[in-house]
Design a protein around this nucleic acid. Sequence first.
RNA 1: GCGGGUGUAGCUCAAUGGUAGAGCCAUAGCCUUCCAAGCUAAAGACGAGGGUUCGAUUCCCUUCACCCGCUCCA
Length: 537
Amino acid sequence: MEMKELVALCKKRGFLFQSSEIYGGLNGFWDYGPLGVELKRNVKNAWWEDMVSTHNEQIQTPGAPATYEMTGLDCTIIMHPQVWKCSGHYDLFHDFMVDCTESKRRYRYDQLRGRWVEAKGQRVFILGDPACENWDETIQARAMKFFNLRGKDADQLKFDAELLSLETLKGEFSQVLAPEAKNLGSLTAPREFNLMFKTIVGALGSEEDATFLRPETAQGIFVNFRNVLDSTRIRIPFGIAQQGKSFRNEITPRNFTFRSREFEQMEIEFFCHPESSRAWYEFWRNYRFAWYEKMGLASDKLRLREHDQDELSHYSVGTADIEYAFPFLPEGEYGELEGIAHRGDFDLRSHTEGKLVNRDGKLEVELNENGKPKHRGSGKDLSYFDDQTRERFVPHVVEPSAGADRATLAFLCEAYHEDEVPDENGELTKRVSLRFHPRLAPIKAAVFPLVKKDGMPEIACEIYGELKKHMAVFYDEKGAIGRRYRRQDEIGTPFCITVDSQTLADGTVTVRDRDSLEQWRVKKEDVVAEIRARIEK
RNA sequence: GCGGGUGUAGCUCAAUGGUAGAGCCAUAGCCUUCCAAGCUAAAGACGAGGGUUCGAUUCCCUUCACCCGCUCCA
């Protein structure tokens, strides 16, 4: 399937529109249409039901190390600015970048390193490529080339001993050779890329009142950890779930809704004893993977990828991504649906003590030049006291963090299906159907009178009314029956119910299955029970 | 943010420095007894802004969006 076809279908049938389309659109923002909103809500509801509201804390979930409790929260998008300083986002999301006007490449300012070198009476600062494996070798080779020296003349190069960050040059780049440039001074001054959306609280607010739209929902859970403990009788191990919008000022939004600037997350922060955190991490990783399979993603397009040690965030003991082979990615590549991160006690401790950094494998408060905490914590005790063991500890956190829009997009991609169906003359014609899991389908059933006479519309309307009390249903009496079936196939309606002449004789109607095209007869008063049973199956 | 490409109706495609045309889809009606049939009617577009011109969808500039590659991706 080409991504183009899916994008076209999404627009044609009202799943997704470009935001502000009549004004030309806005890069990185998308609107859900009448069917899209139902689909996405079904995805979010399935997640919430399966993870939170139908979770039974009295029974040990298969694969779980123990029984556990689940509860929820809904926190604000704008939070106290200190939240983002202690979480690390403030520092991490303020990247300074330099552009090379010669090679048209962009580099992270803090990642560029080089050495001063003198030869032929000229002193220049030569940068290595941030991706290179050996800085000294790379810089040596580039210096030889720049000064046009042969191998035997290598001793003419006089290097300063130290490998220096570009930051030490304080913006004076006229003698700098950029990593892929041939001439000196091709780098622009460092420019700030703010990945968090900034806004001002208060009508007369100034820059000092600047706040940020949250770049993740997780922090709302951490800062409310104490509130949840104190207002409920919940005991560790337990999880707090939250769904909601987050915002990241992505440099390059791309690939339909996959990387959007405004997106919705479905996150769980799971709190447990440090000693069992590894086991819980493994449980959540497998449990969440199985959920996507259960909801219909093909296992050969899904992948569970453990991050390498050097890829891990500084506070994480382990992270795994659940990835899906999106059709817009090259063959063999996968895109992230959900990350399951072991976050240790980084978050709770940061919000108590101040922003932490990893020093030789130990988390310590990051200090500023005066030896004071760089970002002060709340000072509030976020530890946990276990009455059974009389032990006090800071819980460790396992975080399954999913993208609601990415999951919705994956379900759309997976559902898209083309096949051939015989028309009324027995000739094969192309059919497009969206094979959603019935729980996710925006419309669960459609009701048709076969023809618009003999009282069939009245009976169909009656069945429609009964179904409508329980689910999203569609009624259609317009046009040929085949056309009505096709329309429902294209929006993924799993069942079509048709009133025909036999209904008038024996009170049964036909139920048609979207995928197999099979039809069977059901008493009209049993239709609601029949459809509900099949959706829940 | 850089380079290349593309913007005409919901979709596919025309034509034109002087009233923008068709097919499909969708809409309403007729007809129709199970998988996009037929007939009728009505509806629908030059991405946006500016310039040149008597007149610009067409020529020029800017901008926006999308696609591909690079960059970025907590």
